[in-house]
Design a protein around this nucleic acid. Structure first.
Lengths: 344, 344
DNA sequence: CTGAAAGCGCTTACAG
DNA sequence: CTGAAAGCGCTTACAG
């Protein structure tokens, strides 16, 4: 039933109405100053009267520039991604580009599909947000796809994801996941904790691996049984926390992100444990609600919005890519009320 | 320094390599079954060898269909939007469309700009998510722009936003904001609360107005001084909560969303008030962290992801638009631990 | 400052 | 089942 529709006005329609050539209309559209004032005004009136909207596809085809920046994220409802994306969009808007945000639901296949879509649209830039998946096949496909962007002259930015060795021209903005986790664990060690449980993220994600690496360095001589597997969701944090609490020697639990830490906190409460009296808990990212958990959560702050803004600026060509290809952003320990001294 | 780049392979390149015409390649691309098996295989090999990626702009221009669905949201880092968008994207992915999510930062001007961008891209559908702004000029521009989409045959869906009278062909998916708030206030009334403070959202947003309206109906004879202005942020909830708590007659505080309720909760704690012993607090939306506030927050649950999925299906043409143009979704009271009986 | 013409890379009747 | 040709709506040298 999608019957007969109005054909939108074209540039030719505008040219006819204004009594000029298509080239002249195009010049007005692109703010060329090779147009006399009178002509410009006539054209602008025609544009207004016809409610003319330039066809972005025709323009992209003729000019070989799309005004589109692709942003690929894992999961929009995860604050980690949401904050980075907000930073990106502030900048793309300033640059007059359209940030096209696609979410993969953490599915590698969907990541590939979305990238293909972006290549079809000849995106001027593409930003991959969040941890990469350690899977040889997937990495190969990804690298091939991304070099396709590069070969066209499109900019590739990795944000919160390690550089890809086979893709030296891509810019990478990374977080100090390892160092941040180390400082967090050392903070607990200084409080007297010796048996510190750790809830890690999905095993193949670079973010998980880097944070876990920090734990392994700082928690020397740790028992491998102190590490539980999570999936970055609250539910998985609850389950893993519950398991760790069944070991009576654990006096502190560190989760690889705040959402899982919130789950572990709930598990501690459910088991009747006082936090931080009987067990300390800590997270990672410092998303807003850390202030509102019970008690407020000790965590590590990542400059998410700033990272997104930087990625956006590079992708739009507003900033030059970093000379070394990599910008490493800090991670700051934020001590709140879920961590305290061990009471033996 | 963006020097000489590789020209991506075109359909003609593929045709030459495979020794067929462009039309045949196009047929293979579009899965037409008017191609012999042998020819198809030859073309597919050429596509693979050349790493050919169809140019979406050329295709959109020739076929007058863009495979793009635009989604306009206020603020990605607000879980309210994030959950709706996740629902949308599940469906657009199934439909093979690209969901192009643009955020306006709650700026009406930016909303218009993003819509113009989507019109240029000849989006097949557009979804406006979240409350509309009550401003005559802005509404007029918006309506004009949206009818431009309609006239082209693109689908317009309003999600979590009231129908626009001048735009009867648009589908609207609305939440029972008023009824949900009424049930929440009645729950408090049943617990003996007589002086219930209310923290409202930005005054011009439809969401704020509908929720406030529910409060006004249910809290009959309320003192206008019991209503404080917020902006849907945690900070504004803290401030408004702080003000309300200075009135010693207030025994309960309802906020127009969970994020502000979390702020109010923190303000109550800061003032040394026990929740719910001395003051009850409640929010709206039921975002995930409501389970982790201290104490867990009483609120009203909105089917955000379902709403997004429905909007996505309609926008992609997977589902027919609702016959009446409007789908009204429920709002369910979720009683947790921040609300309790009045202790006089 | 302005216009005619070619070209961007596809799809789609039309013929065969 | 396949191809030649026109056309989608712009931009961009090239001339003037």
């Amino acid at each position: 039933m999608r019957g007969d529709f109005v054909r939108p006005a074209t540039l030719t329609d505008v040219a006819n109405r204004a009594g000029v050539s298509a080239a002249t209309v195009s010049r007005v559209l692109n703010r060329s100053n090779l147009v006399s004032r009178a002509t410009r005004e006539r054209v602008e009136r025609a544009i207004h009267e016809l409610e003319y909207v330039v066809n972005g596809h025709a323009r992209a085809l003729a000019a070989a520039a799309s005004e589109v920046i692709g942003v690929i994220v894992g999961d929009m409802s995860d604050p980690f991604f949401a904050h980075i994306v907000a930073g990106v969009q502030d900048q793309t808007f300033l640059a007059g580009q359209l940030a096209l945000v696609c979410s993969t639901g953490s599915d590698p296949l969907r990541e590939i599909r979305q990238l293909e879509h972006l290549r079809r649209l000849r995106a001027d830039g593409v930003i991959l947000v969040g941890g990469s998946v350690r899977d040889a096949d997937h990495q190969l496909t990804l690298t091939r796809l991304l070099s396709g962007f590069h070969n066209r002259g499109a900019r590739v930015v990795l944000c919160g994801r390690p550089p890809i060795p086979d893709l030296p021209k891509a810019s990478a903005i990374t977080f100090d996941n390892t160092g941040g986790t180390m400082r967090l664990v050392e903070h607990l060690t200084a409080l007297g904790h010796k048996r510190i449980g750790y809830i890690t993220g999905p095993p193949l994600r670079s973010t998980s691996r880097e944070r876990l690496h920090g734990y392994r360095i700082a928690a020397r001589d740790h028992d491998p049984g102190l590490i539980e597997q999570g999936t970055f969701t609250r539910e998985s944090g609850w389950l893993a926390g519950h398991k760790l609490l069944q070991r009576n020697d654990v006096t502190a639990i560190v989760a690889a992100n705040d959402v899982m830490a919130a789950g572990a906190l709930a598990a501690a409460r459910a088991s009747g444990r006082d936090v931080p009296g009987q067990v300390s808990v800590a997270g990672f990212d410092d998303i807003e609600f850390c202030q509102d958990t019970h008690p407020p959560l000790t965590t590590v702050r990542l400059p998410l919005r700033e990272a997104g803004a930087l990625a956006g600026r590079i992708a739009c060509g507003l900033d030059e890519p970093p000379p070394t290809g990599v910008v490493r952003l800090g991670a700051e320990l934020v001590v709140r009320d879920t961590t305290g001294p061990v009471r033996e």
